[in-house]
């Protein structure tokens, strides 16, 4: 097993005729993912490199039975693309696009209330269940099937953690990049709950960044409910404070958000915190033996 996606997941690509969309659709298909088609309004009925194209997500779902969608649509149309996928009953919507206006995401979150879809992203690398299904822009070959769940806000830093695991011959159950934007579809906490419920995930690496309090929220869950060992790294200990958002942003999260306070709280919750990004896998191995 795994979380979110596996070898049976059928995936469509929204924005498949763009260079980025097509490139990554091909990459995912090469990895073994069931990439069953794509959506580009106005190009329905045609195909590109063997992928059938549809005008609407609704048509694509009807014809292909897709349950997941990956979005490479530019920022101006990203929110609309997400809502179209949700409306068509897609269970898992993954938005890779970087630069979506935050108020668009506020509307999307409202739109999704009471509906059954889960959104990952935006501004994220995607999700991979190694050996089974890759949806997104991550390089497939650095991954290896195994017992460690990985959840992260960042792209390349996730690859770094995965690579540290794979180099030590430790595989991953599922790796989820939730994205770096302030308003997104899925939080660290959501993914942590899924890892706890997944029998094939035996331990977890959580990668966070400064700002907000999503890492603290997940850590409190780890402290109160999680039976599996968790290691973590928080990036941004050296980031200049003045570059963050002004007064009001810091207040509403209750003064939380800097790396030192995050690390301290995570450690209090029983999480093995890596002091250096080179030690993410080692921090996990301190408290868990594969």
């Amino acid at each position: 097993m795994s979380i979110l996606i596996d070898k049976n997941t059928k995936v469509i690509t929204q924005g498949i005729t763009g260079a980025t969309g097509l490139f990554h659709a091909q990459g995912a298909r090469d990895y073994g993912t069931q990439m069953v088609g794509g959506v580009t309004p106005g190009k329905g009925g045609t195909s590109v490199d063997g992928f059938p194209i549809f005008n609407t997500v609704e048509d694509a779902v009807k014809e292909t039975g897709a349950t997941a969608s990956v979005i490479y649509v530019p920022p101006i149309g990203s929110a609309d693309a997400i809502m179209e996928a949700v409306d068509a009953g897609i269970e898992l919507v993954i938005c890779i696009t970087e630069g979506v206006p935050v108020l668009d995401m506020v509307k999307v979150r409202k739109y999704m209330e009471g509906r059954n879809s889960r959104l990952i992203g935006p501004n994220c690398p995607g999700v991979i269940t190694p050996g089974q299904c890759k949806i997104g822009i991550m390089p497939g070959y650095i991954h290896k099937p195994g017992p460690v769940g990985v959840v992260s806000r960042s792209g390349t830093l996730t690859y770094e953690a995965v690579w540290q695991l794979t180099s030590r011959d430790i595989g991953q159950s599922t790796c989820v990049g939730i994205g770096g934007d302030p308003v997104n579809g899925t939080s660290h906490l959501d993914v942590m709950k899924m890892f706890e419920a997944d029998p094939d995930t035996k331990s977890v690496i959580m990668i966070g960044e400064i700002g907000g309090d999503a890492e603290e929220e997940a850590a409190a869950y780890v402290r109160d409910h999680m039976t599996k060992p968790v290691a973590a790294f928080i990036a941004g200990a050296t980031a200049p404070a003045g570059k963050r958002m002004g007064h009001a942003g810091a207040i509403i999260s209750g003064g939380k958000g800097d790396a030192a306070s995050k690390k301290a709280f995570l450690a209090e919750c029983g999480i093995s915190v890596a002091e250096s990004p080179a030690e993410m896998a080692d921090a996990l191995l301190k408290i868990w033996t594969p």
């Binding site: 992260s152 806000r153 960042s154 792209g155 390349t156 830093l157 996730t158 690859y159 770094e160 770096g180 990668i207 960044e209 400064i210 790294f233 990036a235 941004g236 200990a237 050296t238 980031a239 790396a259 002091e275 250096s276 990004p277 080179a278």
Partner: peptide, 14 residues
């Protein structure tokens, strides 16, 4: 990548 860039600054300091 922004996350790796921050982490690289962190490890230099570390």
């Amino acid at each position: 990548g922004a996350g790796l860039a921050m982490a690289t600054m962190d490890i230099i300091k570390h």
